[in-house]
Structure formats: structure tokens, C-alpha cells
Nucleic acid binder design. Structure first.
Lengths: 115, 115
DNA sequence: ATAGTTACCACGACAGACGTAGTACGACAG
DNA sequence: CTGTCGTACTACGTCTGTCGTGGTAACTAT
């Protein structure tokens, strides 16, 4: 199965993560599994990529974290919630996506030209 | 006018440049103008990005350069020609694009969800 | 004269993605 | 009762494509 390279996905991790936070807060491990499921295993985000994206996006004010310390076995879990700025960032990125898609597709050759 | 950011375009410059070399060899300045025209000014590639892409892709064996020294006024021009490996790289990247597009679009919310 | 277009290159900085490794707890198999 | 698997992270350094700055050089139009 073909996989998606980091350079191709670069710039879209924000969209992907923010999408999964649009309705409810969530946390790293859960988001990681959702990306995998929703993409039908076509994109499996690396842990370090995901957690560093959290840090970056919190610094940028797109998300806010809070900790749930009441898990079984004294475990902790860090949740993230999307902010208003995050929603605007998401929307802007989606518009950029539409534009980018239109541009890129002009440089995709017809099947016949590659024989 | 919204513009396309470097992180979003990253990984697609190869496709864009190789597309413009599919039929005939070309050179930096010409390719730069074609990208601008074909994208209707939506994407204006930076000179340094373009020329460093040439260097990288030649190192990877996707393109070959040759120099035209017979221009008016003793000027030179470096042309690039796509190789067989370059064509295969282009085709692979196009397939990856299709896959990526499908994945990303799953994370684009309906209009209504962003109010 | 000088600004604009053509045509290119060197150098270093930046940021996002990644590789490797480590922590720590619970559950379950052998 | 040892070991692996799943859960849930974090630290640290590396890599690579893009970009900012600045430079060279010749022709062309005002």
C-alpha cells in the first residue's frame, strides 16, 4: 500500500488535528487512532509529529490543554480543546486547501501523456 | 488574494516543475513564468526554491542539465530535461497526490459546522 | 543615467516532520 | 512472575525543503 510522505502531508497536520477537535476536546492517543481509522490506514501520524504539533498549536493559541487526573490507576491524560482562533485557523487552512488543490491539479498530466 | 504558503506547497514543487518538463526541456526563468501564468498568479515560486529544486532533482537523477551558450549577447542559459527516472517519480508523486487528496478531504468540515 | 527584464547562484536561517530512546502503569499470556 | 502488548506521553537531536538576503551580469526602453 502506498503511503503518504511527510513532505506531502506537511502543512495539513494542523487541519487534520483541528478537525478532530471541532466538536469535542480530545487527546493524543485518541486522535492518533482516529486519523488512522478515518484514513483507512493510509495515514498514520507519527507520535512525535502529533505531540509537537500540539505544543506548536497551543503556543499559537489554536488549542488549549487541560489535564484529567482522575483516570483509573492514577494515570493522567492531557486533553486539548480548540479555541476561537483555532477555528478561524482551521477555516483559513481549508480555504487555502481548496486553492492549492486547484493549482496542483493543473500540473497533473492526463494518463495518456505518461506512456 | 489568498496565497499559498510554503508549508502547503512543500512536496509539490517537484510535480509542478516536472510537469513543465514532460514534453520539452526548459529553464528556470521560463518555468517560473509558466507556473505563474498557469496558476493565474495564485502561486509564484521563489527563485531560490526553484533553482535549489533543480539542483536537488538533478542529484536525484530526475532531470539532466545542458547549457545553451549561443544566446544573443554571449549570455548562457541552463536547460533541464526530464529523465526516465524523473517521469517515474512524477507518476508516483501524482498517485500520492490522489491518495493524499482523498485523505485530506475527509478532514474538511461541511460549511455548516463552522458557524 | 537608470530602471526594468532576463537569467542565475551562494549562503545561512527556519520550521515542521522524523528517528531514537525513555518513562510509567495496567492487563493478560505463558 | 516474567514478558509482551496497549495506553499515554516526553526529550533531544537530525534532516530537508523553502525562504530571505544579497550579488553578478548583460541587454532594452525611457
Amino acid at each position: 500500500m502506498a503511503e503518504i510522505s511527510s513532505d506531502v502531508i506537511r502543512g495539513y497536520n494542523d487541519i487534520i488535528i483541528l478537525y478532530l477537535l471541532l466538536n469535542d476536546p480530545s487527546y493524543g492517543y485518541e486522535i492518533s487512532k482516529q486519523i488512522r481509522q478515518m484514513s483507512e490506514d493510509k495515514y498514520i501520524i507519527k507520535e512525535t509529529t502529533l505531540y509537537s504539533a500540539f505544543t506548536r498549536m497551543e503556543k499559537n493559541g489554536f488549542i488549549e490543554s487541560f489535564i484529567d487526573e482522575d483516570l483509573a490507576g492514577g494515570k493522567k491524560r492531557t486533553y486539548y480543546r480548540i479555541t476561537q482562533a483555532g477555528k478561524e485557523h482551521y477555516r483559513a487552512k481549508c480555504e487555502e486547501w481548496t486553492l492549492t488543490k486547484e493549482v496542483i491539479e493543473k500540473f497533473i498530466a492526463d494518463e495518456g501523456r505518461l506512456v
